[in-house]
Simulated assay, not measured.
Amino acid sequence: MKILVDADACPGRDVIEKAAKENNIKVIMICDLNHSLHSDYSEVVYVDSGFQSVDMHLINICEKQDIVVTQDFGVAAMALGKKAFAIGPKGYIYDEENIDRLLFERHLSQKVRRGGGRTSSIKKRSTEDDYRLYKNLIFLIEKENK
């Protein structure tokens, strides 16, 4: 098991590393060349800055039972297809029961925006988000170790 992070726009990296360190799990943070990340714990992998290059690299190295941290529902769906776990940076776990609905809602929102409409804005990150992310990462780690 390893934790793969879609790190281009992933808040909560410190929470991810804390959970990983406590359980001696490798973390790989993947970002494109337009970003600069530094970590004393995680391996940072840089990929070209092409369209979805981070997503494709992450999915290519993803294996069964890995934990993928992403806010992209498409990446989460592909990770689930590889029998990995998927969780958002706010700590919400993606699974077979909710991913289809999330993908459909994303499709509807894109349709509204293409038509000139507006969709709701993203809420600011809170301490509850950090707590949920930590708690659910530990849940997924323990789920794998059972």
Rank of each mutant, 00 (worst) to 15 (best):
V5M: 02
V5H: 03
C10G: 08
G12Q: 03
R13I: 12
A19F: 05
E22G: 06
I25E: 02
K26A: 04
V27D: 01
M29E: 13
I30C: 11
D32K: 08
L33T: 13
L33M: 11
L37D: 00
H38C: 04
D40K: 11
Y41R: 08
V44S: 05
D48G: 14
G50L: 05
F51V: 14
F51N: 15
Q52V: 10
D55S: 09
D55E: 10
L58I: 15
N60E: 13
N60T: 05
D66P: 09
D66S: 08
D66H: 11
I67H: 03
V68T: 05
T70M: 02
Q71H: 11
D72Y: 04
A77H: 11
A79G: 07
A79W: 05
A86R: 08
A86K: 09
G88C: 12
Y94P: 13
E96W: 03
E97W: 06
E97N: 15
I99V: 14
R101T: 14
R101I: 12
E105I: 12
L108T: 04
K111T: 12
V112D: 02
R113P: 04
R114E: 13
G116E: 06
G117N: 13
R118Y: 14
K123G: 14
K123M: 06
R125G: 01
E128S: 12
D129L: 03
D129W: 04
Y131N: 08
R132C: 06
K135H: 12
N136R: 06
N136G: 05
I138Q: 00
K143G: 00
E144L: 02
K146W: 03
K146R: 13
